[in-house]
């Protein structure tokens, strides 16, 4: 993993020095363990603060929206797919970007580690496939694959789909992954069971909107939650309004979500709202053979009108 960091610094140094970019967007170490933070490097001197490890889950595409500079950006598989979507949706131009691709080995789930560890987590270090957690009471080692983020466990696009530089050889994609076992499990339930499930799932929501703020797909000048005419939904903690918010947010991500996990990671109360977006992701794959952000040549499944649509119903 340290090889990644060295290579990132080396590339960034070069790009900033020869003025191919005005800034590099990457990560630096955070003040808390497992909380790396986004970092914008504008001068070559700061390059040595850039790092890479299994705590770089934040989707950096968010920082590209409507920027006008030339930018170097560090991108995992999911980030790269969101960059593709950003380019398609005119949020940034391809020629503004130097994409520094990172073949990703998965990010760790800090909540899970905090839960497994006894006492406050003081430091976390890692090797290729193990995570060592130091707490007040001692040290514990976990297999990395056991503490991966849920979305990383089922990820089949770990390598960047688009890049100008690559910090390492592509990693092997995970094979024979059942990506939608959780969605199918819910689909199979009876309506009343589903109702109860979603009731419980969304009950803790405090409408802080961290999920939508963390999401690179949310960039409208005025979000529907803030609109007053028409008022799409109330501002209250009424369960109906909470559900409306989550359902509509998910619909806005249909055909565009890359399951980067930003929403779930950002949620302060630990709601897995990815279940909603994943259902739509699955439907897009099943019905249109579509996965978001895989190519610059085609817009999202629900974004196009084609008279030669193969679906018989349209004729």
């Amino acid at each position: 993993m340290s090889g990644y960091t060295d290579k990132i610094r080396e590339i960034s140094q070069r790009l900033l020095k020869d003025c191919s970019v005005e800034m590099i967007i990457g990560f630096r170490k955070g003040t808390q363990p497992m909380m790396n933070e986004p970092f914008v490097v504008r001068s070559a001197e700061d390059v040595d603060q850039l790092i890479w490890d299994s705590n770089c889950g934040i989707n950096l595409t968010n920082y590209l929206t409507n920027r006008t500079e030339k930018i170097g950006i560090i991108a995992k598989g999911c980030d790269s797919r969101n960059i593709v979507t950003h380019i398609l949706e005119n949020k940034i131009k391809r020629d503004q970007l130097v994409i520094i691709g990172v073949p990703c080995r998965g990010m760790i789930d800090r909540r899970r580690i905090a839960m497994l560890a006894e006492g406050e987590v003081l430091a976390v270090t890692e090797t290729d496939d193990a995570i060592v957690v130091k707490t007040g009471t001692g040290e514990n080692e976990y297999k990395k694959s056991d503490v991966l983020q849920q979305n990383c466990k089922v990820c089949v696009h770990r390598n960047p789909v688009i890049h100008d530089e690559l910090v390492a050889e592509p990693v092997e994609e995970q094979q024979d992954i059942d990506r939608y076992a959780d969605v199918r499990d819910i689909e199979a339930r009876k309506p009343e069971e589903k109702w109860a499930f979603f009731d419980e799932l969304l009950a803790p929501c405090i409408r802080c909107y961290a999920c939508k703020n963390a999401c690179p797909l949310c960039y409208c000048p005025t979000c529907f939650v803030d609109e007053a005419k028409p008022q799409w939904l109330g501002k209250s903690q009424d369960p109906m309004d909470i559900r409306t918010f989550h359902f509509l947010r998910a619909y806005h991500c249909a055909g565009r979500c890359t399951d980067c996990g930003a929403c779930e990671r950002a949620c302060p109360v630990g709601i897995n709202m990815r279940l909603l977006t994943k259902k739509l992701e699955k439907d897009c794959l099943d019905q249109y053979g579509w996965e978001a952000g895989m190519s610059l040549d085609s817009r999202p499944a629900l974004d196009i009108y084609r008279p030669d649509d193969p679906e018989a119903f349209i004729k």
């Binding site: 005119n90 949020k91 960039y219 409208c220 000048p221 005025t222 817009r299 974004d303």
Partner: peptide, 12 residues
């Protein structure tokens, strides 16, 4: 003022 220039309208 509300437009985010995402081009969905142009595409659909």
């Amino acid at each position: 003022l509300d437009c985010s220039s995402c081009a969905v309208c142009i595409s659909v």
